[in-house]
Amino acid sequence: KKTSWTEEEDRIIYQAHKRLGNRWAEIAKLLPGRTDNAIKNHWNSTMRRKVEQEGYLQESSK
């Protein structure tokens, strides 16, 4: 079943993607209940745009 993505999950994906790049299977290990494919789709459909537009979460990672 599809549940919506939480801010916490987005944060984990964002940090992991910065470190690992497009290694979705590795990132998926950090998110129980999410598949690598689901994460990749979420990144491509939602997060990548956010990151590019806003420099997503930069201000809170100090």
Rank of each mutant, 00 (worst) to 15 (best):
P32H: 03
A25V: 10
W5A: 01
G55T: 09
I13F: 03
W5I: 04
I13S: 00
A28R: 03
G55R: 10
L57W: 08
L57Y: 08
P32V: 09
T35G: 09
T6S: 13
I12G: 01
N22S: 14
M47L: 15
Q53I: 07
Y14F: 15
T6Q: 04
W24N: 04
W43V: 06
D10I: 05
E9G: 00
T6Y: 01
D10C: 00
D10N: 07
M47Y: 03
I39M: 00
I27W: 00
I12T: 07
H42V: 01
R48F: 14
L30K: 10
E9Q: 04
G55A: 10
W5S: 02
K2Q: 13
A28L: 01
G55V: 10
H42D: 00
Q58F: 05
M47S: 05
A25T: 09
T6D: 04
R48A: 12
S60M: 07
W5Q: 02
K29G: 05
K50G: 07
W43Y: 12
R49T: 14
Q58H: 13
Q53N: 15
S45M: 07
H42K: 02
P32C: 06
A28K: 02
D10G: 03
R48Q: 14
W43R: 01
G33Q: 05
A38N: 09
E52Q: 09
W43N: 03
L31N: 01
E26I: 00
Q53G: 11
E7G: 09
L57D: 14
S4E: 04
Q58E: 13
N41C: 07
I39A: 02
R11F: 11
I27H: 01
W5F: 15
P32E: 13
R34M: 02
K1Q: 00
N44E: 14
K40Y: 06
W5E: 02
E26Y: 02
A28C: 09
M47V: 13
N37V: 14
R48T: 09
W24Y: 04
E59W: 07
S45W: 10
R49V: 14
T35I: 03
V51Q: 09
Y56I: 15
G33H: 15
N41F: 08
T6K: 07
I27K: 00
T6F: 01
Q53E: 14
S45A: 11
Q53D: 07
L31R: 00
H42R: 11
K2D: 15
E9F: 00
E26C: 03
T3L: 09
I27Y: 09
K40D: 03
N44M: 13
E54C: 09
R48E: 08
A38I: 13
E8V: 07
E26W: 01
K40E: 14
K62E: 11
Y56C: 08
Q58R: 14
N44P: 01
R48I: 06
K29H: 07
G21S: 04
E52K: 11
E59R: 09
S60H: 10
S60V: 13
G55I: 01
W5G: 01
L31G: 00
L57A: 12
K62Q: 15
V51R: 10
Y56H: 09
D36S: 15
K1W: 03
S45G: 12
I27V: 04
L30T: 04
R11K: 14
V51D: 08
Q53T: 15
L30Q: 10
Y56R: 15
I39L: 04
T3A: 11
A25N: 11
Y14L: 13
E26L: 04
R34G: 01
G21T: 02
I13P: 00
N37Q: 12
E52L: 07
S61P: 09
L30E: 08
K29S: 14
T46A: 10
A38Q: 13
L57V: 14
A38M: 11
L30A: 05
N41I: 13
E9N: 02
A28G: 06
E26N: 03
